[in-house]
Nucleic acid binder design. Structure first.
Length: 420
RNA sequence: UCUGAUAUGAAAU
């Protein structure tokens, strides 16, 4: 069973669910009883591949064989639910562990906290952190880092910094995960100086920083419109022996866009390929956004057309940035035409597309159109996000439809989406 | 140490 598991873990690394199941079958045929490691490893493959249903099938299979589940089994199941964005199901498994009289271990807590955080349920995540203390499970740096990252992404930077203090008080060393999470949070909150100071402190302290950290500072500087600092961080990245990658480039393009240097944005984009980075949909989207910001919509459409001319079908990110730029520049008809086009290309509008169209409609005084988009967002596979709801509320209010705005608020409560 | 959890790029209020 140990040898089989070496094969199984190779399958898991590659998310090869079918192969893993095949190995499990082969074990049975050859009369080798699968042990808990084998089942756990197959479940890990399911979780990476996002095959939640299969993960539960494997769980049932191991139980029918009389193999007892351990904490790794439950941890894997919870993770599979989280990776499949099924928070409710993750909670059911987590609760089942508690109901069995066991105390969830630090990984299970960490997994649930991470899932809550990724869903923007920061308060629920923090509540579980307190619960850990009360049941005597010590949070490790995975737990803190995950929370810090989620806070940074959901407008809770000050909480992120409190957690940063807490983890140090608990004797945990901040690492590259901590640092990049904080930097991103600062960037999103517009705290350029704080981000730069953090970066400087870490440089001075001699902590080895990886490319995630350098790219995070560059992105923070870019978001805050600090082109000079973005370049300084690029120098530091290279001085540390790293090569800029496509993450670096798309941030740099954004930095130029936000510093009103559209020509440099274009030349960075054009130089990507010769520097070993494929100009991907993120770079295209950065560039289109930069054009929109500079009020050069003709250039934005040129970029869009050049993607098509290259024989590529535009990515959803490409559409969403162009739709947003159109909506912001009052080209609402074009924006809606692009919505039709992306659907005709087999793509599904995401929450960014919807909120761009909703706020564009609101600014044009078209409450019905905004509400129609809200309904379409609700009809989608994923529940509407807080952003879509907020955009709709804002659109209703701009159109003096106060009652409608309150209906959306009520809908948020029905969806258990905490208003921010 | 045969199995489970954390960080980087565009964009929406």
């Amino acid at each position: 069973a140990v040898e089989y598991n070496i094969i199984l873990s190779e399958c898991a690394k590659r998310s090869l669910v079918e192969s893993a199941l095949g190995v499990l079958d082969a074990m049975e045929r050859r009369g080798t009883a699968a042990n808990v490691y084998n089942y756990n490893t197959v479940m890990s493959a399911c979780s990476r591949a996002g095959h939640l249903h299969t993960a539960f099938n494997v769980f049932a299979r191991m139980q029918s064989k009389g193999v007892e589940a351990d904490s790794v089994t439950y941890g894997s199941l919870i993770n599979a639910c989280g990776k499949a964005c099924d928070l409710d199901r993750a909670l059911v498994v987590f609760q089942a562990v508690k109901d069995s009289g066991a105390t969830p271990d630090v990984v299970m807590y960490g997994t649930i906290i991470d899932t809550y955080g990724k869903h923007g349920r920061i308060d629920h995540a923090l509540h579980l952190l307190n619960e850990m203390a009360s049941v005597g499970v010590l949070p490790n740096s995975h737990v803190y880092n995950s929370l810090i990252a989620s806070c940074g992404k959901h407008n809770r930077v000050s909480t992120a910094f409190e957690l940063f203090e807490d983890m140090q008080a608990a004797g945990l060393r901040p690492d590259n995960f901590t640092l990049s999470s904080l930097l991103v949070g600062c960037g999103r909150a517009g705290l350029a100086d704080k981000a730069w100071q953090l970066f400087d402190d870490m440089r001075a302290s001699g902590v080895k920083m990886n490319k995630f950290v350098y790219n995070s500072v560059i992105s923070a500087c870019a978001r805050c419109g600090h082109l000079d600092r973005a370049y300084a961080a690029l120098d530091a990245l290279q001085a540390a022996g790293h090569e800029p990658d496509s993450f670096t480039y798309s941030s740099l393009i954004t930095a130029c866009g936000n510093a009103d240097d559209l020509d440099t944005a274009f030349s960075l984009f054009d130089s990507m390929a010769s520097h070993g980075s494929t100009p991907d949909a993120f770079a295209v989207s950065s560039l289109i956004t930069a054009c929109g910001k500079a009020n050069q919509m003709d250039r934005a459409f040129d970029v869009f057309e050049s993607v098509k001319r290259a024989g590529l079908r535009p990515h959803i990110n490409t559409y969403s940035s162009l739709i947003d730029a159109c909506a912001k520049r009052g080209l609402l008809d074009q924006a809606f035409r692009l919505l039709d086009e992306l659907r005709a290309n087999g793509l599904e509008p995401n929450e960014f597309v919807f909120s761009a169209l909703i706020s564009g409609s609101g600014k044009a005084g078209l409450a019905d159109s905004a509400l129609d988009m809200f309904d379409q967002a609700r009809a989608g596979r994923m529940p509407p996000s807080v952003y879509v709801c907020n955009a709709t509320i804002d659109a209703c209010l701009r159109c003096d439809q106060v009652d409608k705005a309150f209906e959306v608020l009520a809908e948020m409560q029905r969806l258990d989406l905490p208003p921010d």
